[in-house]
Nucleic acid binder design. Structure first.
Lengths: 138, 138
DNA sequence: GCGGATGACGTGATGTTATCACATAACTGA
DNA sequence: TCAGTTATGTGATAACATCACGTCATCCGC
């Protein structure tokens, strides 16, 4: 069990890492990991839940898809400090990039405080065209 | 046709406004507006699409639900300046509040520029407990 | 007024995303 | 060994969203 993770979590994590910089839906994962023995959505969703909980992957709400955390290194495993970065998502090519900006984090903290909400989770996604796709003809 | 909107858009908008400060899913709208003659999901989704396009409602990605824009006043109608504010979403009671913060908007602009992405849409949601729910026992 | 273009709507089928419910197996520690 | 917990298998179902095709009304140029 790689990284000390349960088998299914390891399978899903490896698949997502092999698509670094992209996001896969649960059913795309299911299709790709069917041959490895994952037979139903439940199996995938359970693995995803575990990986989300320990911060090894992130959910992209605007795509209903999942991407490997760009900062989770080998050996962090359980107990890894979970961050919730912002993402830039390209509508054209599907590229997903983490945006870690201290100023953004700071402002979000202030906004959250002022809002009177006890913030438990953040969804910060910038959706558009990545540099390459914006420059491309068409 | 209230506000010069097509009938179905007007029905959906009125329903969402009657739940100001909350969000409703497409199927909740369908259930409530069935008696008014809206029979299928398509009918609802078409109305939602039109309302989103002219900025009279917003989609809350983390809920797969929709909420009336807090700033769209009577008479704005088509051509209304569409903003995409941030939202605070209470997991407990379902409250949805728009957060319009100039500093946040400014930082997002900078982050977007630096990212090299041509940003077409933003999803900014703070999910947690509203003041009342955070204070409540249990 | 005819005819085409457009926009709104009705409706059944289908596609996609996510969860429930219940059974079985595997690991862990007294 | 046995109980408690965690992980998994699997079929059914729920929730969210779109496709495809047809109809009807309005508008506009001729």
């Amino acid at each position: 069990m790689r990284d000390g993770l349960p088998r299914n979590q390891a399978l899903v994590l490896d698949m997502l890492r092999s698509d670094q910089g992209r996001a896969l839906t649960a059913y795309e994962l299911l299709a790709r990991l069917g041959p490895a023995g994952m037979r139903g959505p439940q199996t995938i969703y359970r693995a995803l839940e575990g990986l989300l909980k320990c911060g090894l992957i992130h959910r992209i709400e605007s795509l209903n898809a999942f991407t490997a955390c760009a900062h989770a290194h080998e050996g962090h495993g359980y107990g890894h400090h979970t961050h919730r970065p912002a993402f830039a998502v390209c509508r054209n090519c599907g590229a997903v990039r983490e945006l870690d900006d201290p100023a953004l984090a700071a402002v979000l903290g202030v906004v959250a405080d002022r809002s009177g909400f006890a913030v438990q989770d953040r969804v910060i996604e910038l959706v558009g065209a990545c540099g390459a796709c914006a420059a491309a003809p068409g």
